[in-house]
Amino acid sequence: MLAYLIRRLLYALPILIGVNVITFALFFIVNTPDDMARMQLGVKRVTPEAIEKWKVERGYDKPLFWNGAASGTDKATETIFFGKSVRMFMLDFGRADDGRDIAREIGLRMGPSLAVAVPVFVLGMFAAISFALLLVYFRATYLDFAGVVLCVAMMSISGLFYIIGGQWLVSKVWHLVPISGYAEGLTAAKFIILPVIVSVLAGIGSSARWYRTIFLEEYTKDYVRTARAKGLSERFVLFRHVLRNALIPILTGAVVVIPALFMGSLLIEAFFGIPGLGSYTIDAINAQDFGVVRAMVFIGSALYILGLLLTDISYTLADPRIRLQ
């Protein structure tokens, strides 16, 4: 097990390096720092000095990979690739365009992101599984059919509609909660309750339908027939046998997104004014702050790889037949 984990972690390294190379290529080779400077400073009245100044301020004035002018190890370290990409492995993300430290900012904004993402994850999963169980319990009836139709209709509605409609109905017409904003501590509840409900609603259609197919597939298995032949009640079969076995694919499918919860949701956070990592990313995209986008790409992929690892571990915990070696 331990050997397996270590090997997996070592596998993760080339992937992270690959991600780094891709983002580096996107940000510095497809577009030279000069292009970016001109873009940021406005295309028209821009002098070479202004571009130089912009580049020096952000550390883009060095060579890409190899600094022949420097001495010793500085030949490799005094470059853009080292300064902007390799440093990320030491969790040093540099500064955003507004001068703030990106790592510190990420630490500050993680809390609000989690405050929304964790309830969404837990409640969303609970609601979808309950709904799917209900449909499966009444399988092959009109209730099941109507439920599936409802799921398909709900997943055909744009996520933007849930957000805009929810804000309009709950905040503007009913005046129940503020439209957007955030506060520390317990007062945060009134700000996060609407985003949580909206996200759960927006996601329930597709996940409930998916869980339903998993449950139904489980129902065709032999052990279910055996359980019924033993004379167990339908409810007992559903909760004790089918639910337990179906939880394996459901849980392992869900584990992969757990680390990504830190990233928050771009859309929800931007709409509801929650100062989390999602809105940080959106602001960076709109302000064309490349440093922040690069840092978020790096963290996102690291968390995804962590999620894959956790998935493997959760397999062994949920299903004793699987052994990692």
Binding site: I22, T23, F27, N31, V293, M296, V297, I305
Partner: peptide, 15 residues
């Protein structure tokens, strides 16, 4: 796959 989809899209579109 490990790059978050929206971010990769955002980065590529910006570029």
């Amino acid at each position: 796959n490990s790059i978050p989809g929206v971010l990769l899209i955002a980065a590529a579109v910006l570029m």
